[in-house]
Every structure is written in C-alpha cells, then in structure tokens.
C-alpha cells in the first residue's frame, strides 16, 4: 500500500480504539451479572462452610440455605449496631482503616427457633505476597470456635497456599478464644509442622489457643496470626456484648 498519511493513521487508530472500547463495554456489561453472582456465591460458600459441609451442595442449595439461616448485621468497634446494609461494607477496604474506625459485619446464623446458633466473623490480612482472608464461626458461648474457612490469592503454591486447605482449617475446630479469666485471646499458629492431618490436631489437643503450623511458610503463618489477632480484638466488644445477652 502507498505510504499512509498522518490523518489516515489518526482516523484508523481512533476508529479502532472506539470500536474495541464499545465491544469491551458491551461484553463487560452483559457478563457483569454472572460475575457478581459468582463472587456472591463464593462468599456465601465460605460463610456457610464454617459450620456445614458445602462441598457437595449445588448453587441453588447454597443460596437457599444462606437466605434461611444467615442474618447479616454491621457493628462498630464498640459493638453499636450500625444502620448499614452488609452488602455496602467491603471488608478488604475496611481492613485498610484504623481498627477502631472499621465497620464490622457479623453474619449471625439462626436456627429454626430464631435463636443465635453461631456468629460468623470475617477475617482479613496480608500473607507473604498478597492478601489473605477468611471467616470464623463462634459458638453461642462466645468462646469456642466451631469452624473456620481460610483463603488466599497469592501465597506460594504447596507452601503458604496450603492455608486454604480444609485440613488446615480443621486444626482451628474447638479452639478457645477466651483465656481462664474470660478475656478474648487470639489463636496462634505455631512454627514448624508436626505431621499434618490428624497428627497435627492431636499434637495440640490440650492447647486451646494454639494450632499446628505450616512447614516452609513461616511468613504466611505470621500473616494468619496477625489476621486473627487483629479481627478478634476488633470484635471483642461484640463478643462480650453477646455473651451478656
């Protein structure tokens, strides 16, 4: 072709940019509902996963169970309930704020009689490479952990990324977040690993505030510990208030 003029190049580039922007806008708009639904489902799965086994449930079952059981509320650092919708609070954004200024969502799990079965608290922190997060379900005694779900997006595969496995979460089952005097304390993941699976759980059977570590992932474990410490202290007022009820 002959040497193109500048105006031809300019028109060509503008047409191309506009065309691709329009296509992308169309694609992104039409796929957005499905994408948002995926993110919602993932969150619901994690919240429910702290007290039931969701691995075999279908999408509809999860949505239904969530709708019947979970009552989300938002509280402040001193446990005042805030007039906010839970869906307007982004835990990952609140995490960047000072502890006392965070808006704190609580997912209250109700049984058939309308009594509080568990309080599911969100957790958020930073591992070795990227953010880590999770949920912890506290029994109505506001003391023992019923179950946790942990997740990550950037930890080393096979080392730190193991934190998302079920067998790691199982180590937190039945641990206590209160000491003998009733003060809220955190759960500390120890250094090194005793063996994995049942061995790990057994090794810390008599240590209510400790769980077995992740071998080769000291910094991820530090992040997990910081996350528990951070959020259990943020929710201390809520936990104490519920205990009095």
């Amino acid at each position: 072709m002959p040497k193109p003029t500048n105006s031809y190049i300019l028109i060509f580039m503008i047409t191309l940019s506009v065309l691709s922007a329009v296509i992308l806008a169309f694609v992104s708009e039409s796929l957005k509902p499905a994408q948002i639904a995926n993110i919602e489902l993932e969150k619901k799965k994690s919240i429910l996963g702290t007290f039931v086994d969701v691995s075999q449930m279908s999408k509809e079952e999860i949505n239904k169970l969530y709708a019947t059981k979970v009552k989300p509320i938002v509280v402040s650092y001193d446990a005042k309930s805030l007039e906010l919708k839970e869906s307007d609070v982004d835990v990952s954004e609140e995490y960047r704020k000072e502890l006392k200024e965070r808006k704190l969502p609580v997912y209250q799990i109700m049984n058939d009689k309308g009594e509080l079965e568990y309080s599911v608290l969100p957790l958020y922190g930073h591992g070795l490479y990227d953010d880590i997060w999770g949920y912890v379900a506290i029994n109505p005694d506001m003391k023992t952990i019923n179950g946790v779900v942990l997740d990550n997006k950037g930890e080393t595969p096979g080392l730190g990324a193991r934190m998302s496995e079920k067998q790691i979460a199982d180590r937190y089952k039945g641990k206590s977040i209160r000491d003998d005097k009733g003060q809220v304390v955190t759960i500390v993941m120890q250094k090194g690993e005793r063996g994995g699976g049942e061995v790990s759980i057994k090794a810390f059977e008599n240590e209510p505030h400790q769980v077995d570590g992740l071998s080769g992932a000291t910094n991820t474990a530090k992040g997990i510990n910081k996350m528990f410490e951070d959020y259990l202290s943020a929710y201390t007022a809520y936990l104490n208030l519920e205990l009095k009820k």
Partner: peptide, 20 residues
C-alpha cells in the same frame, strides 16, 4: 496489541462469568 488485548479481555470476562 489492541486487537489482541480486546480478545484477551473478552476471554478473561468469560472465564470470570462461567469458570470462576
């Protein structure tokens, strides 16, 4: 790059919607 980027974003969005 622009043509390729448009296709990449479309695939990325499709994966996000149907293979999360």
């Amino acid at each position: 790059l622009m043509v390729a980027a448009t296709l990449v974003v479309i695939i990325d969005q499709l994966f996000k919607a149907y293979a999360y």
